[in-house]
Structure formats: C-alpha cells, structure tokens
C-alpha cells in the first residue's frame, strides 16, 4: 500500500498527553493519522464518532498518565482496553499490523499482556512490569539507546544493530522487571527471540547505571517487541526527538531543521506497513 493510504489510530483516554505531536508526525510523513478516543472504538460514543479498530493499519498508544496512573502505570488503560477490545486487538496483532506503545503506552502494552507476550499475542496476565524508577521520582533527561534488534522489529528497520540514538526519557515508572523466580530464563528467551530492541548506554556506548539508565531497568532494557516484531513498546519518547531541534544539544551539533534520532521509528513502521500490505 502507499503511504498516504496508511491509516494510523493514536489511541487516548483521559490523561493521555502526547497524542497531538504523535498524530502530527505520522501526518508529516504522509500517513493518514488521527486521534481516537477509546470510547470511539468500544461503541460508547455517539454514532457519528464511532470507529472500528479493524479499519486502521497502525495502532499507537502514546505517552501520558492515562486515567492518572494512580495505580500501577498503564494498568487502568490496559484493563479498560482489554475488557472491551480483547478480541479485536488479538485479530489486529495476529494480522501482523503494527502496534506502538511509547512511555505510558509501553506500560499499557505490558499491563495488557501484549508485551513481552512470549506465550501468544495477548497473555491473560502481565508477564512483566515497569516499576517505579530507582530514584523514586520522575526523570526527564536525554538517554542514549543502543539498537540491539537483529532485524525482526517493525519499528527499527532503518537502524543497524549497534546504532546508538538519543531519545528523551520522561517517566516515573520505567524500570523494566521480570518475575524474580523466572527472571533469567525469561530474559534469555527474550534475547533469543530477538525481542530486546533498545538498551540504555552511556555517552561512550557502554551499558551503564544511573543516570544513563534513568530507572534501573533489568538488563538496561529500554524497548521490547513481541516475538513477531509487530508489537513494540519503548520507554523513552522517539517523537520528542523527531527533529534535531528537539535534541537537548542541537546548539552544539547544528542543523536544527534536520531529522532527529527518533524519526526512524516512525519512518521504519511506515516502511514496514507499505511493504507488507
């Protein structure tokens, strides 16, 4: 399909707050993107506002504090989404269409059992968690992310393994953890399945602790995909480095209007969709 035919749904509920820029950047790259409130997919909106998930080619859950995240981040959005749309979501994922979760969206995908999803497209219970940062508070700081994926991820096709990109972290709960008793076994499985997409590194490209890894995540994991590579969750915000002028140090590096490091995620998924469908 052509880029202009790609339909992107940027899903939101109250407290989602990165939807506008996400829609804008997909549009800027030529796709047809729109904000869609969960109510519009579940039939709870007036008829003229209703939408069907199956009519979209890409689903994105953007960042924010969905429903306030007053319980575990992403849990409420995930529960509301799953209770009404589980079947449609499963069909969507099985069809190979891509699902992107950024920051709070990553938390939603994990809480919904759509990541790491080692045992099927949507597990009944979450298999992992994005826990409170080691610093015990929100961290808004640039992170270096090393690309570790071998080519299976629908969202990083334009990156080589080993590439390092700069993307802004902005979260209070980004510490990726697996169940303690199965931690090593599951981690091995994720690595073998090529599901680890980005890991936090320092300014020399080495795996490092705080503040380079802003949250204390297991194995410095910053982003994951499912086994098939079409469901992707990333803790830092690629849309916040879509242009070079959004990078924190562009006054040093120059070229403010140039592409920022986060743009590859959007470009790559559109490549994937246009090639596959």
């Amino acid at each position: 399909m052509k880029r202009e035919d790609v339909r992107v749904a940027v899903l939101l509920i109250e407290g989602t707050n990165c939807e506008d820029e996400s829609v804008r950047y997909f549009q800027l790259l030529g796709a047809h993107a729109e904000k869609v409130h969960l109510k519009q997919l579940t039939g709870d909106a007036p008829p003229e506002f209703r939408r069907r998930l199956a009519d979209y080619d890409v689903l994105m859950i953007p960042g924010g504090f969905a429903a306030g995240d007053y319980v575990r981040a992403g849990a409420i959005f995930a529960a509301r989404m799953k209770s009404r749309l589980a079947g449609e979501l499963e069909d969507f994922v099985r069809s190979g269409r891509p699902v992107l979760g950024v920051c709070n969206g990553f938390q939603v995908l994990v809480e919904a059992g759509m990541l790491p999803a080692v045992r099927g497209p949507i597990t009944d219970t979450p298999e992992a968690v994005l826990a409170t940062n080691d610093s015990a508070h929100y961290e808004c700081r640039p992170s270096y992310l090393k690309h570790e994926n071998g080519g299976s991820c629908a969202f990083t096709g334009r990156l080589k393994k080993g590439d390092v990109i700069t993307v802004v972290s902005a979260h209070g709960e980004g510490k990726f953890l697996l169940p303690k008793e199965r931690e090593q076994e599951m981690l091995r499985e994720l690595i073998e399945n090529d599901q680890v997409v980005f890991r936090y590194v320092d300014d020399r490209g080495k795996y490092a602790g705080y503040p380079w890894c802003p949250n204390g995540a297991l194995y410095n994991i910053a982003a994951l995909s499912n086994r098939e590579g079409n469901v992707f969750g990333v803790q830092p915000h690629p849309e916040r480095s879509f242009f070079r002028y959004l990078h924190p140090d562009w006054t040093r590096s120059g070229n403010p209007d140039g592409p920022g490091d986060g743009r590859v995620v959007f470009e790559s998924v559109l490549d994937y969709v246009t090639a596959k469908f």
């Binding site: 707050n17 990165c18 506008d20 820029e21 960042g63 508070h137 929100y138 961290e139 808004c140 640039p142 270096y144 700069t166 802004v168 902005a170 320092d202 300014d203 503040p211 380079w212 915000h237 849309e239 916040r240 879509f242 002028y245 959004l246 924190p248 140090d249 562009w250 006054t251 040093r252 403010p256």
Partner: peptide, 20 residues
C-alpha cells in the same frame, strides 16, 4: 523531575550543554 519536554515543542531546554 518536571517534564519540560511534553508537547514536543521545547526547543531550548532549562538545562544547557553536553548530554549528561
């Protein structure tokens, strides 16, 4: 601790300089 980047429009941030 404050999100100074949300809305993706902060082109000069409150802290300046080399990353880290």
């Amino acid at each position: 601790q404050y999100d100074h980047e949300v809305r993706a429009s902060t082109v000069i941030k409150p802290l300046h300089g080399i990353v880290g």
